[in-house]
Design a protein around this nucleic acid. Structure first.
Length: 243
DNA sequence: TATAATGTTTGAAC
DNA sequence: AGTTCAAACATTAT
């Protein structure tokens, strides 16, 4: 569920509810649900892994974390966190974090750091990377303030693709590699999106959860790397460690 | 059945 | 006061 492209898919799937008033609300979420009743959805947006439901003067922010899920015009057995019913269907959210954001949504988010947003700014990302030379690139790629939407799968695939060892230090990477990584953050995310829509995402993984390097046929390493201690899959032979 | 996994926040410790 | 880090939380497939 979690990575940015999956949220973009969700956003597209609920477009039929845009402009519709909420006719009933339920669920075990702690938020004030009565506030949503009879409110009209102005827009569905996404920022990285955040799914945003915009109403007049406020926005609902949904984060699925690791285990969240949703159903559209369908339900799961497990207790619903939030159900929004419209005259033409319903949206059910499970095991997610839900909050209200007050006022203009643009005051809450910097759209230029979302790799899937039309306003994504790779030059800005480049400048930000210069400020954190001592961070391992595996941690840097997961920084939502820099690469909003990039998750662990995308991280592993990008680093494999550009031949960079996940424990490389950001500040030691050659200019060319920095450029490739920033470029791939956007490119791979959109490929992820297309593959996921075709239900063939996993088929395209070359590193994530894999055991053998398809380039040199040697075993891939699997290790929890960086401060974030997220699992990395990489080839010691063809991914260069820059330190 | 125990484990691990596409993630983030929190609060204690330094 | 700022940084760091482990714990907490949530769910499901293997």
């Amino acid at each position: 569920m979690p990575e940015g492209p999956s949220i973009v898919i969700l956003k597209e799937e609920v477009q039929g509810f845009s402009g519709q008033p909420v006719i009933s609300v339920s669920g075990n979420s702690q938020i004030d649900k009565s506030r949503l009743l009879n409110q009209t959805v102005i827009a569905f947006k996404s920022w990285g892994k955040h799914f945003l439901i915009c109403f007049a003067g406020f926005t609902l922010r949904i984060h699925f974390l690791l285990f969240g899920s949703y159903r559209i015009n369908a339900r799961k057995e497990t207790p619903v966190r939030l159900n929004l019913t419209f005259s033409n269907g319903e949206l059910n959210l499970y095991a997610c974090s839900i909050n209200y954001l007050e006022g203009d949504i643009n005051t809450h988010y910097d759209w230029t750091v979302d790799v899937m947003n039309a306003d994504w700014d790779p030059v800005k990302a480049r400048r930000t990377l210069d400020t954190i030379p001592d961070k391992m690139i595996c941690d840097t790629l997961l920084e939502q303030d820099i690469f909003a939407g990039v998750g662990n799968i995308i991280k592993n695939e990008i680093l494999y693709r550009v031949y960079v060892h996940p424990e490389s230090l950001t500040g030691k990477l050659p200019e060319m590699k920095i450029r490739e990584i920033i470029e791939q953050a956007q490119i791979y995310s959109f490929e992820f999106l297309a593959w996921k829509k075709q239900y063939e995402l996993k088929k395209h993984w070359l590193a994530h959860t894999k055991t053998l390097c398809v380039r040199c046929n040697l075993p891939l390493s699997r290790k929890k790397t960086g401060v974030k201690k997220r699992r990395s899959f990489f080839c010691e032979n063809c991914q260069t460690l820059y330190r």
